[in-house]
């Protein structure tokens, strides 16, 4: 049987009566709400999420020089560093580039039902979308499988406006 070891001080009994900092413990458990600010979407993010919100469509940005279409879109090319100005609509028909079956949640607890997570790439596109895959069992999912995004009815401009990807 593999040996299990304690890896966090918080899991131990007090160390021979050593003092423990309750304040430090709390801080590490939940960063104080005041720690957070608001992350700006930026020009390309605004474009991407507004198109999702208003029209349930995926937007890319094209680099003419490299002949690459970026999803998510950007205002610069990460290869040649040219500025990008050409937006294009991406057909909602992708392919699973790679996936995993997740059995634990963010807190490390085991999930009752595993979740399928994938990087979905689109034809002729550089990049893709990382999201959940549903309407298929974990046993049947495959790399190379064709999938499409299922959008929510009521959208607010978030990656969660895509409910999940499903096989087509």
């Amino acid at each position: 049987m593999p040996v299990e070891k304690v890896t966090q001080v918080s899991q131990t009994k007090p160390w021979y009566g050593a003092l423990s900092s309750k304040y430090g413990e709390a801080l590490l458990k939940t960063p104080e709400p005041g720690l957070y600010g608001q992350y700006t979407y930026g020009i390309a993010g605004e474009r991407f999420f507004r198109e999702i919100k208003d029209n349930a469509k995926i937007t890319g940005a094209k680099c003419q020089k490299c002949n690459l279409i970026y999803v998510p879109p950007r205002i610069y090319c990460e290869r040649c560093f040219e500025g990008l100005e050409e937006w294009c609509e991406i057909e909602n028909k992708g392919e699973i580039h790679t996936y995993t079956i997740g059995w634990v949640d963010l807190d490390g607890s085991r999930l009752e039902e595993p979740v399928i997570l994938a990087l979905v790439k689109f034809d002729g596109v550089y990049g893709g979308i990382v999201h959940k895959v549903e309407e298929i069992s974990a046993d049947n999912v495959k790399i190379g499988m064709k999938v499409s995004a299922v959008f929510k009815e009521k959208r607010e401009g978030s990656i969660l406006d895509i409910k999940y990807f499903k096989p087509i």
Binding site: Y41, T98, T100, G102, L106, L117, A118, I143, I159
Partner: peptide, 25 residues
């Protein structure tokens, strides 16, 4: 990424699982 990835609220070690799967293939 705070807008493209983090809202999925998933355990980030999924990245290693996805990488392993593609590497093995």
């Amino acid at each position: 990424d705070p807008i493209y990835n983090k809202p999925l609220n998933i355990n980030p070690y999924f990245i290693a699982g996805m990488e392993m799967n593609r590497y093995l293939l």
